[in-house]
Design a protein around this nucleic acid. Structure first.
Lengths: 242, 242
DNA sequence: CGAATAGTGTCTCTCAGACACTATACT
DNA sequence: AGTATAGTGTCTGAGAGACACTATTCG
């Protein structure tokens, strides 16, 4: 769509876009602990050409908001959503220097070993997609649009949500040890937790069930593997496909 | 804007609207307790002509989302926002039978005695605006669009938020007794609370400060009046003007 | 065996809820 | 005085955190 002049453009209705903040857990070589990472996409057009931005794009007429966010996820990571929830709608007048855009932002949690959609996996080599530490100030400081504030808000929500419960397992595999869950909490909350008390707290929730399997291979007593037997919160707060 | 045929309309970009769920506390003559009420607007055009709907309308090119919600509030109640927060963006394909609409919904808390904007107070006589009990199934069952689900979600959020704290005073005046705060909690949570324990809990929060005044007039010992000395949560979660 | 983590027992402190009790206004 | 609500004191049980201790596997 083209506009003949600035005044006319200004009176166009606001455009609607959907972006997605995608979190995953990776080993941090520097600290040795796990930490949160997220993929960004390099912009190939103005405005902010060459800078990193959240995956996203305009809302197609046949996509629900959720579908659009799921497409963001698929196109940048090749993954199917396991956890995908609406974060916030950002609509300030000056978010974009060129035209008025309202962005509905979702946030996702994925695991490294989630099954890839092979049809789109060719995109994963794309040099215009890269993963960064979610709290790297160098990266956050140079993002396009207001994406820095969006990511910081997503991190805030994640931290609040993880305390509230039942989020951590989304970043893990089907079966997991309680120590792995603790590592997730420690990465997200950025503090150490007492293994004994953490274990007891987790065991007291009905959502986590023990299996008969153990994880061998460490140089210590093999830990038992557990499984998540999910419960739902409010329907809108968990449109996720499990 | 007109469309020559259905196919063309279907490919138009989704329209963007802002609606607002406005809660207030009123005496319920039937139960004698306080309960939650909200204003609705009768639709004067198709679709859903004649049915009740949430106050709202299309997003103007010069309004931020927050401004648009504040305008909804002013136009239906004449009130300035004291608490106004984004609730959710609703974007399913079939929300409206005529065209694709994405609605960003806000929710507001107001007091009966909030100052009115006199310039718009003429609208308050409008027979197309009326207040209803927020949990009246008769009303909820006949709303336009998906507004029933929206209101139920807003109620859910309110209940969760009020437990989390610091919301109740928004429905009250500048100075209030602890029993009034308890009435708010009881109305929102729809259960009775122990006055002694509730009092102790509230006093232990730093956000509520006692004044030197007492509320006379009841046929009992006059209760002390308190004042709220607010704290902020996350900026995005409280864009409210206090 | 020692190292390392898994997993248990137990003490303490804090806080929510139940509820008896005292205080002070009104009629 | 009687009533109604304000406001205090105190007991109990559940849960969070500190931390000592036992269990089991690997090298």
């Amino acid at each position: 769509m083209q506009f003949s002049n600035v005044a006319e453009r200004r009176e166009q209705p606001p455009a609607l876009a959907v972006s997605t903040v995608i979190f995953s857990l990776r080993d941090d070589e520097r600290t040795g602990r796990k930490s949160l990472w997220l993929p960004l996409v390099r912009r190939t057009r103005e405005p902010f050409r060459g800078q990193w931005a959240l995956p996203g794009g305009p809302l197609g007429p046949r996509d629900s908001l959720f579908d659009a966010a799921a497409n963001n996820l698929r196109d940048t990571t090749g993954l199917i959503p396991r956890y995908l929830e609406q974060l916030y709608a950002f609509g300030d007048l000056d978010r974009s220097p060129t035209r008025r855009v309202v962005s509905v932002v979702y946030w996702a949690l994925v695991r490294e070993d989630d099954p890839h959609d092979t049809a789109t996996s060719v995109l994963l080599d794309d040099s215009n997609v890269a993963w960064f530490r979610a709290d790297d100030p160098e990266v956050l400081g140079n993002l396009a649009f207001d994406h820095r504030q969006i990511i910081e808000y997503a991190l805030w929500r994640l931290r609040n949500k993880v305390e509230y419960g039942s989020i951590a397992h989304r970043l893990l595999g089907e079966r997991f040890t309680l120590a792995q869950v603790r590592e997730v909490y420690e990465a997200v909350l950025d503090k150490e937790l007492d293994p004994a008390n953490f274990r007891r707290t987790l065991r007291s929730t009905p959502d986590i069930e023990e299996t008969d399997e153990f994880l061998a291979g460490g140089k210590h007593r093999p830990p038992r593997l557990y499984r998540y037997t999910g419960s739902t919160t409010h329907p809108l707060e968990s449109e996720n496909i499990s």
